[in-house]
């Protein structure tokens, strides 16, 4: 996407390998945050699936599975990473018009001792 200033170069239509690599090299203190996509009655299912495929480089099967999860369950965690990474994804999703939020992952490393907030 053409999200310019605030985004790093690695958000340009991440390829499968690029995305996988960048999630693999995370260091412990930065993990875990989730990128959540919420259902809304406006966004087309085909469009949501297209965004997941083109931006994250997900396969058609994975993109459709996540899209259906959003549609049926109301929300889906579509990516994990450091806070910075999922925030970068979130602004890209907002660029596409998807309703995205970030949240601390539950039950992940280190979250046990935290307050554990849940919406």
């Amino acid at each position: 996407m053409t999200l310019s200033v605030a985004l790093g170069p690695d958000t340009q239509a991440g390829t499968q390998t690029g995305t996988a690599a960048s999630t693999d090299v995370l260091t412990a203190p930065d993990i875990p945050w989730n990128l959540v996509i919420w259902n809304d009655p406006v966004n087309l299912m085909s469009y949501v699936s297209y965004v997941f495929r083109s931006y994250f480089g997900y396969s058609e099967a994975k993109a459709n599975k996540l899209m259906l999860e959003v549609h049926k369950k109301g929300r889906s965690i579509v990516a994990h990473g450091s806070k910075e990474q999922v925030e970068q994804h979130a602004v890209a999703m907002h660029g596409f018009g998807l309703w995205a939020t970030v949240e601390k992952a539950e039950g992940g490393a280190g979250s046990g001792k935290g307050k554990g907030k849940r919406g």
């Binding site: 996407m1 053409t2 999200l3 310019s4 200033v5 605030a6 985004l7 925030e87 979130a90 602004v91 907002h94 660029g95």
Partner: peptide, 12 residues
């Protein structure tokens, strides 16, 4: 987050 990202999101 809005203070850091909203302007460029509006622009894009």
């Amino acid at each position: 987050f809005r203070r850091y990202t909203e302007r460029s999101l509006r622009e894009s």
